[in-house]
Nucleic acid binder design. Structure first.
Lengths: 326, 326
DNA sequence: GTGAAAGCGCTAACAC
DNA sequence: GTGTTAGCGCTTTCAC
């Protein structure tokens, strides 16, 4: 069933059917005829032919490191809602945290496989930047900030600083468990926020009080152990993610430390887990789903208006004070 | 940059370039020339034109109820891996648990928008079945069983039965908190498994010992409260999902019941949360990511071999005995 | 308002 | 092995 058959059955030319489907510049009488035929046949225009002809795919590529992650899947939920509402479809590219895969998809998408890209980035290598520059379709970066590109990101610096200040209200010796600073947002941004708060309070953090974990509960457990062995007098610990904090908490409970009396803890991210551990975790809520919606809106806006001006949107946050702090 | 320009630059016809790109039936000499031109120009064939010409999109539509859910996102991770490995791309359709949206996407995909569909289903209405029958592209159903269709599903019945048996080892009065039986898998299947175990043990479960919750922690909390008020002597509770069990647990802890001494609990799903609550939750592990991989493999197999025979794959499970049972 | 005709970029007969 | 040619299904001038 194609447009020619519909035209024949309706007794009009295929151009008229096309007009009916698009601008609607058709007499009422023929409109009605065509409508009826389409309804009877269940005709759907071939999106492939439309794509070829119009050079628009109405597809948005979403490149992300890991779909089965709480934060990422929330972002995708937001992206998906906005795209659907605007008549775009979502092409999902899961890179499994591999830089090579990221580059592969960026390269695949960059020449009009899709109309636009939402890139949930982790780190930017020079190869990333090169490919991004070569991109012939608009890109919005989500979760990271990159100069010269439209992006939606979280205020890691201030979130981290505020939550550290909370620790400092009742803390003397503060430990830090971060993640790799190659990650500008969760790594570098949160570390700087932590340091800013410490400096302002006139407190110091020697290198042995600082550890670098992976993004996992297990790693949080390990690093907490190492940190406490190196600096037994620690009475407060900043963890760059909730998962790390939860791992740290489980180690502390295991060795009989009471939280927050002996040691207080904070995380960042406000994951479901953090609400359920005992004591519940003091953390920062980031609006992940909302940021996904914002990024998608930004992209749709660029797509619909051919605007080229870059926007940078820093999302707010909320400190969630629970029972893991004194 | 299109195939004509590449042909001109390489000094061959565009058919030869096409052969180079596809079957490779080209002399070494010309191969080399074409290779060089493609490398220099960074040419990528237009996938839209290929789709139109070949009637293959190399796209698989994945229809799912909610992407930001632990089980679904794990399935998608598995699907995504297998599709990528086989050169397919993943078109994500998030229905937000709306039947209308499900039908919309099924309708959208059914006439060759995509080469195949993975449908992570919840419930099947007659309209679902009608649309599925009209589908001109292969469909694999994931997470539910539907006669006459290829599907990959979890053994809810036996999982539920086994975990109930575990409760019955040390339990007398067993409560049940399920979910809607419109959901054949998590609702009906698990309920039947529970009842089978009860019957076999010569135990009975009166209506007031059975509740129906939504898929949320909050709902588990509510239903546990109602159940305990209706039947105070309950000493064991079967919960159809981990989240429900976690909600139930938080209510029980709140009113000072000790788990598992006063009341023992089981869930199903082995979610990350269940490992972290205190006491850790006895549950059943389903291989969600693996089932996603299996479903995608099944679909790819159908796509590559034009086979039409339906397969039904029931995935195994593992009972995870933790500390919420006596 | 409507139809004829061109052509998007590619693949697949077919002829050589 | 290679080139010529037709045509996938649609949209978009252009002329009427």
């Amino acid at each position: 069933m194609n447009i020619n058959e519909i035209a024949k059955l309706s007794g009009v030319s295929r151009a008229t059917v096309s007009r009916y489907l698009n601008d609607g510049y058709v007499s009422e009488e023929k409109k009605e005829k065509i409508r009826k035929v389409i309804e009877e046949t269940g005709y759907q225009p071939s999106s492939q032919a439309q794509m070829l002809r119009t050079k628009k795919t109405r597809l948005v590529g979403v490149i992300l490191p890991k779909i089965n992650s709480d934060t990422v899947s929330r972002m995708v939920a937001g992206i998906s809602d906005v795209l659907a509402k605007n008549g775009y479809q979502l092409l999902l590219a899961n890179t499994n945290n591999s830089v090579e895969e990221e580059l592969k998809y960026l390269n695949l998408f960059k020449d009009n496989q899709v109309d636009g890209i939402v890139f949930i980035a982790t780190i930017f290598t020079t190869r990333h930047k090169k490919l991004l520059k070569e991109c012939r379709v608009p890109v919005v970066i989500l979760g990271q900030h990159l100069d010269g590109y439209s992006c939606v990101y979280h205020d890691d610096f201030h979130a981290s600083r505020e939550v550290t200040q909370l620790l400092l209200e009742k803390g003397r010796t503060v430990g830090f468990i971060g993640v790799t600073t190659k990650d500008e947002a969760a790594g570098l941004g949160r570390k700087k926020g932590f340091e800013a708060a410490m400096k302002k309070a006139g407190n110091t953090c020697r290198p042995e009080q600082m550890a670098e974990a992976k993004f996992s509960i297990e790693s949080g457990y390990e690093k907490m152990k190492e940190l406490l062995e190196a600096v037994p007098q620690v009475d407060s610990v900043f963890c760059a993610t909730d998962n790390i904090a939860i791992g740290a908490m489980s180690y502390l409970k295991e060795i009989g430390k009471s939280i927050p009396q002996d040691i207080q803890l904070v995380g960042i991210g406000d994951t479901p887990l953090g609400k359920l551990v005992t004591p519940s975790l003091t953390t920062v809520h980031f609006y992940y789903k909302t940021s996904g919606m914002e990024a998608a809106s930004m992209l749709v806006d660029i797509l619909e208006t051919d605007r080229t001006v870059n926007k940078e949107l820093k999302m707010g946050f909320e400190v969630i004070r629970k029972n893991s702090t004194r």
